[in-house]
């Protein structure tokens, strides 16, 4: 972990706030940054009395406190729709950021050996702590060029087939697989259909259910349906506090069930897609708490938590005999669902 790690760090007010429900914070943030520049100016000019600097510093501290209080209030009971907005925040840490911060000596592997190399899924060898692993994760891209290159994290069949190839390698060398999930969904396009999007995902799900090596999954942002599950069958699954995980995106759900694109908020509530909801439904095993205001406000905290979770669970599941691990994995999947037996 990086030396700069400081879990006690106060959230830095972001000046690039663009989430509508955070709008009440914007004015405070403007005031803080204005005072900060005044303070810097005061420090630069030697002839000013230090009294003014103290005033500025005090005022900034007060404003920061009310910022934190307000932020806490907003995030205390984040709605489903607002959770989706945080999960999609442009500054939210993505797979490559986790690879950079918690994986040592990452060695990327490219291509599905059949059609091509899909940049929407990244695979490769790497070390987390002392554990050699196979890392697999969706990649969305940060700026416009990257986003287009990665197709906004919406993988094609060759992405899922590359992931399966990586998993099979991991199985061969008994390396645990660690998956980072962050996709709005598998890509719904002509080429994707013609190359067997459904078949690629189906095969991955079946093969992950019997892969003879431990699998961990962390939903770091968007857990969009089959596109998420295609690299998401695991022995243990964790979800970041403000990630979402559901059978369909709220937008698509709104247009199908409400027959309009206008009911996305209602759909997001109805789908029970937050980490807390998923934990209740038993579809995940644990929640990794995010820094106040979301992972993007203090990424180092979330890198640390993901790393600690991964190393702890890798240590535990690597102890299982592989037959027992697979039996438990399949039994766990077998128990999922709610029905009445009358």
């Amino acid at each position: 972990m990086s030396q700069a790690m400081n879990p006690g760090l106060e959230p830095t007010p972001s000046v690039t706030v663009d989430l509508d429900f955070e709008r009440p914070l914007a004015q405070l943030e403007r005031q803080i940054s204005h005072l900060e520049s005044s303070l810097a100016q005061a420090r630069r000019s030697d002839d000013e009395s230090s009294g003014r600097e103290d005033d500025f510093a005090m005022e900034i501290r007060k404003l920061r406190e009310s910022h934190t209080t307000m932020l806490r209030k907003i995030y205390e009971n984040l709605s489903g729709a607002n959770t989706v907005k945080v999960a999609r925040h442009p500054a939210r840490p993505q797979t490559v950021d986790y690879l950079r911060h918690i994986v040592k000596d990452f060695c990327e592997l490219h291509g599905d050996r059949t059609f091509g190399d899909d940049p929407a899924i990244i695979c490769g060898f790497g070390r987390i702590g002392s554990h050699k692993c196979m890392l697999i994760g969706h990649q969305k891209g940060r700026d416009t060029r990257e986003r287009i290159h990665c197709n906004f994290g919406m993988a094609h069949p060759e992405g899922y087939r590359k992931a399966l190839r990586a998993m099979k390698l991991a199985e061969k060398y008994r390396l645990p697989v660690v998956c980072l999930i962050d996709t709005p969904g598998a890509f719904p396009g002509i080429g994707a259909e013609e190359r067997g999007q459904a078949q690629a995902i189906a095969v991955n799900i079946m093969e992950m259910a019997r892969l003879r090596t431990p699998i961990l999954a962390v939903i770091i942002g968007e857990g969009g349906s089959g596109g998420a599950l295609g690299i998401g069958v695991a022995d243990r699954t964790a979800m970041l506090q403000y990630a979402w995980y559901s059978v369909i995106s709220p937008e698509a759900c709104s247009s199908i069930l409400w027959k309009t694109a206008e009911q996305t908020e209602k759909a997001a509530e109805a789908l029970k897609l937050t980490a807390r909801d998923n934990l209740k439904l038993g579809t995940i095993d644990g929640i990794l708490e995010e820094p106040l205001g979301g992972a993007h406000r203090n990424p180092l905290v979330i890198y640390d938590r993901v790393e600690k979770w991964a190393t702890q669970h890798l240590r535990e599941i690597k102890r299982f005999k592989i037959e027992n691990l697979i039996r438990r994995r399949q039994e766990r999947l077998g128990k999922l669902g709610r029905y009445a037996d009358v």
Binding site: A202, I205, M206, E207, A209, R210, S225, G226, L229, V233, Y245, S246, V247, I248, C253, I256, L257, L271, K272, L273, D277, N278, L281, T283, R329, Q330, L333, G334, L336, G337, R338
Partner: peptide, 25 residues
Amino acid sequence: ARMQESALSLMQMAKTSAALARLDD
């Protein structure tokens, strides 16, 4: 998958496919 059961419906994909893995084995 049935939207009204959300992530639970998604998990049925894994449940059925895991059972098919056993049958195949």
